[in-house]
Amino acid sequence: MKHYNIPIFISHFGCPNDCVFCNQKKINGRETDVSTDDIKDIIESYLKTLPKKSKKEVAFFGGTFTGISIKLQEEYLSVVYEYIKKGLIDGIRISTRPDYINEEIVEILRKYGVTTVELGVQSLDEDVLRQTHRFYPVQNVFLASKLIKSAGIQLGIQLMLGLPGSTDESDYMSAVKTVELNPDVARIYPTLVIKETEMAEMFRNGSYIPLSLDKAVKRCKKIYSLLDYSDINIIRVGLQPTEDLNDSENVLGGPFHPAFRELVVGEIYYDFLKNILEVEERLEVESNEKNVSRIVGINKINREKFGKDLKIKIDNTLEVNVIKVNGNIYSWKQVLRGEIDEPGNNKY
């Protein structure tokens, strides 16, 4: 059954945190900018167009949901809960910070039918957290995750690559610790420099240098491979293209690409095939046609790199997550494993 989010974007104007990458505006006297009537109108509008036989979640995005007052949280959730009781909505998805989760909050979320909580973890390296002004110990992430999963609520983890103070190793270790958390879903975002943030000033004075697109793809592919190999559902890689993100006045720097995930997957396939070519000196690939674009890469970049060495034949009897190379069948997990094995290991 197809899944649809009904997005409701909230801004937590009362948020006391000043993360260097966030440009959320502070407006005195207002906690947020969404009314309960707004929520009803948004839900009703979506229900008119979404297929009846589909899974629908109301998703509160854009702010630290559990950072707003308990009273307002319950007002918002109770509106959606009425639709859940009528069978029109299947659940609620929220995003919040790990240090804004406790037993009382989790019980409220469970009571009103919240099905997924995504934690904006960003990094599991305490030095990176300090440099981004996220002042909580990593242990808080583990405690929050345990509370969420114990309540029968799906856990999501959001990671940001290339934050101030991060390295290839620290970002990868954040992914290793994410696997220990055993989340149901994950999102991976390369860090962008957004205007009107502290990071924008750091970028201007040279104290922060964002990742290039090439470096971001290379850093991300190992993390993507580890999470996917560990059966964690990666629901987004890279920020979704919007009018604001396509505007150079709002994004001052960083590795934005409208198809960042496809770049990462194409690079994973390139590494896999390159390792085989070095040993066998030929690449005769058979694949389901639905998988060919991932193998050849965006704008056929992998085909250009391999040139005449790469020969591809369509075989729709093969599953999408399986390819045959030089007569040998490889699963997608075997492709991924090449990125996460230690150097020198027999990858295939």
Rank of each mutant, 00 (worst) to 15 (best):
E284L: 07
I84M: 07
K333M: 05
V335N: 10
I157L: 05
M199A: 09
S145V: 10
I276A: 07
E286A: 06
Y269C: 01
I223G: 00
D309L: 08
V320K: 15
G87H: 10
V176L: 12
D214W: 09
T167M: 11
F65E: 03
N140P: 00
D247W: 10
S11D: 06
I153V: 11
Y269E: 03
V251E: 10
K177E: 14
G327P: 08
R97K: 14
V179Q: 06
N345D: 15
F60E: 05
R261D: 13
G162I: 09
G152A: 11
T115P: 00
T178I: 03
Q73L: 03
I84P: 06
N102I: 11
A216T: 09
S35G: 08
A144K: 03
L155W: 05
D41Y: 00
E286K: 14
Y269R: 05
F260H: 12
G253Q: 09
K146F: 04
K218F: 10
E74G: 02
T317L: 08
I188G: 04
K195S: 12
I10T: 05
L318T: 10
K53G: 08
N288S: 08
E339S: 01
Q334P: 02
K308S: 13
K52M: 09
T167W: 13
R204N: 05
V80R: 02
V141L: 04
K347L: 15
R261K: 15
H257L: 06
V265E: 14
Y136G: 02
Y46K: 12
I39L: 05
Q158K: 11
N302H: 12
L211V: 07
Q122T: 07
K221S: 12
K177Y: 12
Q240N: 03
N326D: 10
A186Q: 04
S123K: 01
V264D: 04
E319S: 14
E103N: 13
R219C: 01
Q158A: 12
G156R: 03
I188L: 14
F142P: 02
F9I: 12
I153Y: 08
